[in-house]
Every structure is written in structure tokens, then in C-alpha cells.
Amino acid sequence: MLSSFLRRLATAIPSLIGVIIVTFLLTRVLPGDTAAYFAGPAATPEAIEEIRAKLGLDKSLPEQFVDYVTGLVSGDLGTSLTTGQPVINDIVDRLPASAELTLFGLVIAIAVAVPLGILAAVRQGSWVDHLCRIVATAGVSLPVFFTGLLLVYVFYYLLGWAPAPLGRLDVFAFPPDPITGFLLIDTLLVGDWETFGSALAQLAVPAATLAIFALAPITRITRASMLSVLSSEFVRTARASGLSPLKVIVTYAFRNAMLPVITTLGMVFSFLLGANVLVEKVFAWPGIGSYAVEALIASDYAPVQGFVLAMAIMYVVLNLLIDLLYGVIDPRVRIEG
């Protein structure tokens, strides 16, 4: 098990190297001159040159690349020019915020979408099936910023159920000492129920926004996958043996139908993580997405490279987890490991 895990991990190394090279080159070919941007509009050409030399941008591309990789190896992702902080610190600060939001949104989406998809497949053509279709269509066709604003309008402005969409915590709440960086978990660990409630209240609406978006693919795949498994021969055998409907649907059909669902979950999670920039903007969420966008606008290379690298690593880890999960569910995969 361990060796197959390590072997699987090793296969990710070439793609990570590729990501490093591509992001480095991409940030260099982007329009915009970092030195000019930071020197300000009134700076003299000499001042700009001076800043350029200080940033090491006057060196040739290969030299810059060597510098960058040397830094990477020692864990140095460079310094953000906009925040003045080492990029690694910024990411460590902000990544948990994004991850918590995305994961929570995904959990809500799974909790709604999987049962809905199963029901839609079992009662094909019934009202559940139509509801499933409507939810899925609405979910994909409404842009996230729109559903986000709509939810804020309804739940904050009209109903007043949700707190102001201003970040992860109420202004008056004390953030707990970061242990995992996930506010919900950290507050639970120290038993701070009040802050937990506040964090949860702040999280609910943005997470629901993401969940609505993620519902569609998960429901559709669950339904399609359940339908094909329900018409398979071993389900017929199970029915012909007189097994109860619950046993047939859960133990026989759903466990087999889970495999494509899990693959989809991995994809949904990774694109949620990258694409929740808009949600972070709408809810003033101090996450990694809004951070990267601001850096990109400022032609601030280091945070952008750091962001892409962090995303790539998360993607690799996530896929690894999915592969392992696959092995747990499907014994046929385990053998090939």
C-alpha cells in the first residue's frame, strides 16, 4: 500500500515541474512592466531601472529562472510587492480560508446532490426526476456572482437572517489561534462555541452559493451513473434473489455507481477552488483567489506563481486521494496499484 502510494506520488513530479516552467514563462510574457508599476507614474527612467535591478528583472530569462528555482527548493516563493510579505506566508494565511469555503460548499452540494441524483434515478420520470433536472439546469446557468448577490439580497437585506457579507468572522468576534486554519475546526478544538457560530453564519451564504454551482454536475453524474448500474445484470440478480429495495439500491447499485461520482467530485472540487474568485470578491472573503487576482492585475509575479503552484500541488494531492479512495471502493483497482 505504502509503496504504491509513493509510486503514485512520484508520477506527479513531472507535471509539477511542467507547472513551474509554464507559470514562470507565462508570467514573463504577460503585458505590463512590474518595475514601472511599482515605481509609480511619476518615476524617472533611472528610478525604474533601479527598481528593475533590485527585483532582478534585468537579468536574462534563464538566470531569473535559476534564481526562482533555487528559491523554491529552499521553500522561498519570493516576496509579494503588493503586501510586502513573503508569498509563502500570504498563502499559508489565505489558503485555509479558500479551502474551508470550498470544502464546506462541496459538502453541502454532496449532501443535496447525491440523494437527489439517486432518487431521480430510482424514480425515473417522476417529479423528483424533473426537480433534479431543474435544479441542475438552474445551477449551471446562473453565474456564481449572480447567485451570490441574490442570496445576499434575500438573506441579508430582505430577511436579515445572514450577517453582513464581510469576511470570515464578525468584526467583533475574536479569531481563534490558528491550528488547522479552518475556523470551524479551530473553534471546535478550543470549545469556543460563540466564535464557531459566528464563523458558521458567515460561511453559510457563500458556501451555499458555491454549492448551487456544484450541484449540477454531481446530480447529473449520480443520476446517470445510478441509471446505468440499476439496469446492469448484477442488480437484476440481486432483485431476482429477493433482496430488499434498500439493500439493492444502497449496497449493490450505489456503491458501484459511486466510482464516476468520485471522479467528478475531484474535478468539481478543483475547479471550485480556482473559480471561487468571484464568490470571494462578493463576500469579501480573505481567500487565495482574490489574492491571486489582485497580484495579477499588479503584474506581481511571485504571488501568481505561488498561487498556481499551490493549486497544482492541491490538485495532485486531491487526485491522489481520489485514487486511494477508488482503491478502497473497487477491489479491481487495488490489484493494479
Binding site: 446492469s232 445484470e233 448484477f234 437484476r236 440478480t237 440481486a238 432483485r239 431476482a240 434473489s241 429477493g242 433482496l243 430488499s244 429495495p245 449496497t251 449493490y252 456503491r255 458501484n256 471502493i329 473497487d330 477491489p331 479491481r332
Partner: peptide, 24 residues
């Protein structure tokens, strides 16, 4: 019917490999 299936009458299918749950 569910009570009869398997207990009173049962069935053997074509293609035994597909007739069994592959992951159980």
C-alpha cells in the same frame, strides 16, 4: 413477490461474471 424471489423461485443468469456484484 420479493419474499417469493430467492426463497420459492430463483434464477440463474447468462454471463455469470456480469450477474455478480463486481465490488462485493
Amino acid at each position: 413477490m420479493r419474499d417469493l424471489r430467492g426463497r420459492e423461485m430463483s434464477m440463474i443468469f447468462q454471463n455469470p461474471r456480469l450477474a455478480l456484484n463486481p465490488i462485493r
